[in-house]
Design a protein around this nucleic acid. Structure first.
Lengths: 193, 193
DNA sequence: TGATATCTTGAACAGAGATTCAAAAAGTGT
DNA sequence: ACACTTTTTGAATCTCTGTTCAAGATATCA
């Protein structure tokens, strides 16, 4: 049985190009014309491969979570709360100021406040941010690592709040050096220590 | 000489109504139809009074900076870095979780990532965020209050990063209690102490 | 080669977006 | 009452947006 005409593009390259656009302009600020220009595909091909602008965005966010945002996994594997926090903060400082990517974090600036057309993408990003909170909370909840009067959830939200602040400031033009310096300051004395 | 027909609305009430819409949906996510519905004005009246959607947004941001976001002034007037940080963080926790307003911070979620139509509003918000960094840096730079090896700019960016993280998490649905608890954790031990 | 299946293309589509405008309305001052 | 000025109204405008579609292109399999 016939296989049909093969794709003239590489899905990964297209997702990579679309990622940069969504990252820089946000979901609502990105137009199909932007995506068409960045991917060098006609709108019809994008619809054929991804179903809709929203479908493309979802796959882009998947890719982002797995790759660019993946420093979290390394941090979670560290063997002390301090080391977890250090890797998380350094990872955030670097990930939000990559020279080859737009500044900031897609999960934060992709659709923080959403109009009617972006409710679902916004909820998707929010859920993914929440995953980080849950994972970090579980990590901090491991026995005997935090003082007993410190709530692991508070500690997790604290570290994540800082990294989200990094994302906002990176999007505002802060340099990697400034963010790293801020991380160093925070690591002078973690609040539960 | 004749005075012309008087306005049928109160500018302050209209700005207040528009504020809630921009706050909840962001600049790009807000449509003139949204604004028209919230203010009970026809588009023509809005244009007559504010010139454009962008002009209305600027005035809304002015109002926001003066009123809702004004807890910063109280914090800056405190007499120690710890007290400045405490008032700033508590103020941010409360301001981003007001029951009568949308969650989060207009300056953060109004236009963090912007498409072509929102470049200027985005730059406006960024400049206003930067004002907070500068003011807090100046406050922390006052003689003899921080350890000499701590950069006042780092300290300012640290406090602001936390409060911006509060804004992101509030927009994600975090409760006031969670944010306050996070602030308390941060205040157990400030990193420069 | 021919049948089949998928992809690409480019135009067309309908709806929504911000903005404008002429006419009607509603005040002030003489 | 009249002239004058500004606001309100409601429709119209015009661009942009996401999406669809039919026709042509390009592969595989028999």
């Amino acid at each position: 049985m016939a296989m049909g005409r093969p794709r003239g593009f590489d899905v990964d390259e297209v997702l990579e190009a679309a990622l940069r656009v969504f990252w820089a302009k946000g979901y609502e600020g990105t137009t199909m014309a932007d995506l068409s220009a960045a991917t060098k595909l006609r709108a019809g091909s994008i619809y054929g491969a991804f179903g809709s602008k929203e479908g493309l965005f979802k796959q882009v966010v998947d890719r982002y979570s797995d790759n660019v945002y993946g420093y979290g996994a390394a941090a979670l594997a560290a063997d002390s709360p301090r080391e977890v926090a250090r890797l998380w903060l350094y990872g955030a400082a670097d990930a939000t100021t990559r020279p080859e990517y737009p500044a900031g974090c897609l999960l934060v600036q992709g659709a923080l406040a959403a109009g009617d057309a972006a409710i679902e993408p916004g909820a998707d990003l929010r859920a993914r941010r929440q995953v980080a909170v849950v994972k970090l909370t579980e990590r901090f909840a491991e026995a005997g690592e935090l003082p007993p009067d410190v709530d692991p959830g508070d500690a997790a939200r604290y570290v994540i709040a800082l990294s989200q602040g990094f994302a906002v400031q990176a999007a505002s033009g802060a340099s990697r050096a400034e963010l790293r310096s801020m991380a160093d300051l925070a690591l002078r004395q973690l609040p539960w220590e």
